[in-house]
Computed example of a mutant assay.
Amino acid sequence: MPPAPTPPRIVAVVVTFNRRALLERLVDELRRTPRLAEIVVVDNASTDGTGAWLADQADLHGVTLEENLGGAGGFHAGMRIALQRGADLLWLMDDDGVPATGCLDLLLEHQGEFDFWGPAVLAEQEPSRLCFPIRLPGRAAVVHRMAEVEAAAVDGVIPDVVIPFNGVLVTADLAGRIGLPREEFFIWGDDVEYLWRSRRAGARTGTVVDSHFLHPATDDLGTPLMFGRTTYNHSPSDLKHYCMARNNTVNLRDYRGWPAVLAFLVKTVWFYTFTRPDAGRLRLSAEAVRAGLRGDFTGHRRFLGG
């Protein structure tokens, strides 16, 4: 009889910044998760005592960075550490989400079918609703309700759809082939770029519908515009918007082409001219787009303070 296959070494990679209470909640849940070999936490130079708390957690591999590198820099560092520590599978998540009971086990039922796959990401305040609206394969409109996702699933899976870096599994083999997230992105779009890079490399992606990851619904993601024919990812934060406009421009140019960049510019102008008029936000958008096209990833720093 051949020997039983060696179970994969699964390492959770968590990125945190100034949300110690939420981080502690997440770590408590991860500690209760079977089959998880190790937890790596990357602290983006928090000022709320997170670094000191991590230093006291003997069962974690905690790393506090010298400066805030955002989610992009945090996942870049965390994934590198996890790979160095022998991870076969990397389980990626931010500090404010939390996996539902059985999330990892349900994902692992599909090990070998995918290279980059994850759970359904639900709004923590209303779990019947998706935290991030998604476009189902073969459909033009986005969906917001979990019931629509369940109805569209094939054998419990939505193929070719995944919400990156929210409880997703990435194989070490894939990370070895395509590299790490683009740390210069800081926040917003780094996860999408990594997903699109994965697909370009032939990665198999999907969402396991019965596996759930809870995340607080924040900002005005998927705000309708153009009389409901499309949506726009508005954020009241100038930092988030600047990074979104800059990084989205780069991603669309590199992976979707100039017509997609033009469509994004039209949506941005429409949104801040008609949907939520804001001349200042239009100027900021133009500045961010120019920075992205120039390859300048420094402009966000003025919003960080201190």
Rank of each mutant, 00 (worst) to 15 (best):
A87R: 03
N251S: 12
V149K: 13
P236M: 05
H144W: 13
G62C: 07
F213E: 10
R253Q: 06
P3L: 09
L30P: 06
L104V: 09
R32Y: 03
G70E: 09
P236R: 11
A291N: 06
L65W: 06
D28Y: 06
W188M: 12
P8M: 05
L252Q: 02
L106Y: 03
R199Y: 04
L225H: 15
T33I: 05
P236T: 14
G86W: 08
P3W: 04
G138N: 04
L136T: 08
D95R: 04
G49L: 09
H241L: 06
R182C: 06
P133W: 01
T298P: 06
T64H: 07
D254N: 14
C103Q: 14
V209H: 11
G73D: 15
G51F: 12
G295T: 10
P277D: 06
T101A: 15
D28N: 11
T275P: 03
L92Y: 13
S198N: 03
V250F: 12
P2R: 03
L293N: 05
T47W: 08
A172C: 09
G73C: 07
P277G: 07
R290A: 09
R129K: 10
V27A: 11
L174S: 03
D48H: 09
V157P: 01
V269I: 05
I10F: 05
W270Q: 13
V192K: 14
R135P: 00
H61N: 12
C131P: 00
R246M: 14
R182G: 05
S235R: 05
F185R: 11
A201T: 02
R281S: 00
E109D: 15
D238M: 07
L60Y: 14
P2M: 02
G306Q: 15
D105A: 15
R246C: 01
R145N: 05
H241G: 00
G138D: 11
F132S: 11
D105F: 00
G51V: 01
V250P: 04
T249V: 02
H144S: 07
Y255T: 08
V289G: 01
Q57E: 15
A288N: 01
A201Q: 04
P127M: 01
L265S: 02
D88V: 01
D210K: 15
R25W: 02
R31F: 07
A203Y: 09
L252C: 02
A77L: 13
N44K: 09
H241N: 01
L122S: 02
D48L: 13
E287P: 00
P7E: 14
L282F: 01
V149S: 06
G118A: 04
D160M: 10
A147Q: 10
A37E: 14
L108K: 03
I187M: 10
N68P: 12
S285L: 04
T64G: 07
D160N: 13
T64A: 13
F185I: 08
F132C: 01
V15H: 05
N166H: 15
M93N: 06
L136E: 03
E67I: 10
L107Q: 06
H76D: 14
Q57W: 12
H144C: 11
R229A: 15
P99C: 12
V250E: 05
P259Q: 08
H241Y: 13
P181E: 03
D96H: 05
D88T: 04
G299C: 00
V27M: 13
D220S: 10
R200W: 01
G51H: 12
P133R: 09
G280I: 07
E113P: 00
A291W: 06
G97D: 04
